[in-house]
Design a protein around this nucleic acid. Structure first.
Lengths: 222, 222
DNA sequence: ACCTGAACACCGTTCAAGT
DNA sequence: ACCTGAACACCGTTCAAGT
């Protein structure tokens, strides 16, 4: 009688293990123990550990795809929504940004499920496909970079409270870096920072697009 | 008689090992072999492997600091130069972006050496410190995200040529994703893409700054 | 078809002991 | 002060063998 372990259950358990112990704790043996089997059993369901990691990334991307609202009338809002969902899903898992960015996604259809509706909507609104593709890539790059840094900071605040303590930092900085020191003190809530920085990136995209794409207007005039 | 191993030589050898074998190949034992000592010898010079990784990151950041041109008259050019140096230094090392981003930098003065001149110059030109700090962070986040993706693509093109082959991808995509398919085909040289995307981000920063910062003008009138 | 036991070639790290 | 030998508690993975 099989123990009822499926590929899906293995991946699910791996994601729980990630949240509990971090990426270092995701070992084949620990995962097997959590599923109440011996380590080699997992190799019946997955070719190797890399395939496990790929499946974990794919599962997270699937959740992102599910949470994504359908494109609306404003490409800027579509992008903002995408950025927020991406960040939220990365933050939801310990080491999420590092683990899932640059992910090898096993299901190519899934990528299309996310991108195609956005491309459709934006090209109809007057963007070229190149611009739409660039827009998505720039936003994703920004979110990945932002959350990697954010999560590193959040997590080492727990494991090593001195590392990001401002007092420690100020002491290390000496006298010749007053602005660097001050800048450290005006760091606000990271959610606010994210929204502000996202706004900057979207402004950059707008700067290129509005030139030849006044969307509402063009449609109404004839 | 000591074997002449120093902390600096260990870190240097670790960076060579990284380039040869990738981050998975950077093991204490392999590093010891390269230095012609036994593994425990390294623990005289470094507390543990994490400290080794921190020192590697710090060394790379030091090189970035050395290569950075002094700030000029245009914050936009300063940022572009920073972004290019950062990307180049990440690309120079195998797994560079993943390994060095979100780095725990051991030397706080080094961070100041990079940031302080830029903050100085930009605040003199009319930016607030908050804006200067945001600008740097947004650009760094973008570069980190961009290069992680870029390097993943470059490296798996070597190790697994089918993964990013367009033909394979097109086959997996089926019929319902024509735009996603087309977008895959208009990907140009990654250097050009970087410059274009960097331009977008800088435009976003400009959109906020030019409003209250016509730099040359303000100084001349009285 | 699905899982285990045993084994292989590795890891990072500690520590007494050598020089 | 600087390094080694031996050992500990781990890794991912393979494979014959069990049911």
């Amino acid at each position: 009688m099989p123990k009822g372990i499926t590929r899906e259950k293995v991946v699910e358990a791996a994601l729980e293990l990630l949240d509990d112990k971090g990426i270092e704790g995701v070992t084949v043996r620990a995962l097997a123990q959590r599923l109440d089997v011996r380590a080699p059993a997992l190799y019946w369901h997955l070719r190797n550990k890399q395939e496990l990691l790929d499946e974990m990334s794919t599962t997270v991307l699937r959740r992102i795809a599910d949470e994504l609202p359908p494109p609306g009338s404003d490409w800027r809002e579509d992008l903002a929504a995408y950025a927020r969902v991406l960040r939220a899903e990365y933050l939801r898992h310990r080491d999420g940004a590092r683990t899932f960015s640059g992910a090898r996604v096993s299901d190519p259809d899934l990528v299309a499920r996310v991108k195609e509706p956005l491309y459709q909507s934006w090209t109809k609104a007057g963007l070229t496909l190149q611009e739409a593709d660039d827009a998505l890539d720039v936003v994703v790059a920004f979110v990945v970079g932002f959350v990697i840094e954010e999560q590193e900071r959040l997590q080492s605040a727990v494991t090593d409270p001195t590392r990001y303590s401002l007092a420690e930092r100020d002491a290390g900085l000496g006298e010749h870096a007053p602005l660097t020191k001050d800048a450290g003190h005006l760091r606000d809530d990271s959610g606010e920072r994210f929204e502000r920085h996202l706004g900057i990136v979207l402004d950059g995209l707008a700067a290129r697009h509005v030139r030849h794409d006044p969307p509402a207007r063009r449609r109404r005039t004839r």
